[in-house]
Structures are given as C-alpha cells and as structure tokens.
C-alpha cells in the first residue's frame, strides 16, 4: 500500500501516512476552507489501511497540531474513532498528542479527545514546537 503524503499549507497540516512503517503523523495547523473535502483522501487511505491490518499489529500515531478549527476538530475525532475501532479489534494503537506548553487550547483539545477514547493508548506529550 502506498504512503499518503500531503505537504502543509498555511491553513492545512502536513500529513504523512506510512503503511509499511505503520506510522501516521499529522502536524501543523488545520483550518482549511472545507475540512470534509480536505480530509477525504486521509479517510479513504485510513479505511483501506485498517481493513488490511493484521490483529495485534502496532500502529504509531503522532499528532503535533498547533491549532484545529471546529470542523477540523470534528474530523480529527472521526479519525481517532476509526483508530479506536481498530484498537477494539485487537490492534495496538498508540497515539502521541504533542502539545506546546505555551498553547493551553491544544492541550485541552487533547484532553477532550482522550476522554472519548478508551481502547487505544492516548498520551499527552509536552513538546515545544517551532512556530510555522
């Protein structure tokens, strides 16, 4: 399965979804004009990736976002829900939510998500980030 790579823009994050390394990463800011349209290829890729996943496989997810607008927040929850389902089906899913100590909103956002997810491992990781 091919990797999916989307370069970042001012209002959309960098996305690296690597099937062979089972490593998914999203970093940057997300307030695209139309979040549903922007993330459609990401969901298509993720659904195929998870459908082919062997049980007990480890999947590493790195999320280092500085800002999510409200529609991107909803999209991110849908993204995490698919991973949660995979974890319930036996995959070992580890999500690292990297937040800058100077950015309380994105820490709260990570806390909101972690309260919604139980089967996957959700770590809040403090990490200073370079401005865009």
């Amino acid at each position: 399965m091919d990797s999916l790579v989307i370069e970042k823009s001012r209002s959309s994050p960098a996305i690296r979804l690597d099937a062979s390394a089972r490593s998914l990463s999203i970093s940057g800011e997300s307030y695209p004009e139309n979040a549903a349209a922007f993330y459609a290829p990401v969901f298509a890729w993720l659904k195929t990736f998870l459908a082919d996943l062997e049980p007990t496989t480890m999947v590493q997810v790195d999320l280092a976002v500085r800002y999510l607008n409200s529609s991107s927040t909803k999209v991110m929850l849908n993204f995490l829900d698919l991973l949660e389902q995979a974890a319930q089906d036996g995959a070992q899913v580890i999500v690292n939510w990297r937040y800058d100590p100077d950015n309380e909103s994105i820490l709260e956002c990570g806390q909101d998500f972690s309260e919604e997810l139980t089967a996957l491992t959700f770590n809040l990781v403090e990490q200073s980030q370079e401005p865009p």
Binding site: A36, T73, K74, V75
Partner: peptide, 13 residues
C-alpha cells in the same frame, strides 16, 4: 462533536 459534518464544511461547533 459527535454530530456529522455538513457538506458546506460547517460543524455547528
């Protein structure tokens, strides 16, 4: 947050 996104991209959030 659990309600579906509308096609215009708005989230009602």
């Amino acid at each position: 947050m659990r309600q579906p996104l509308n096609p215009q991209g708005g989230a009602g959030l």
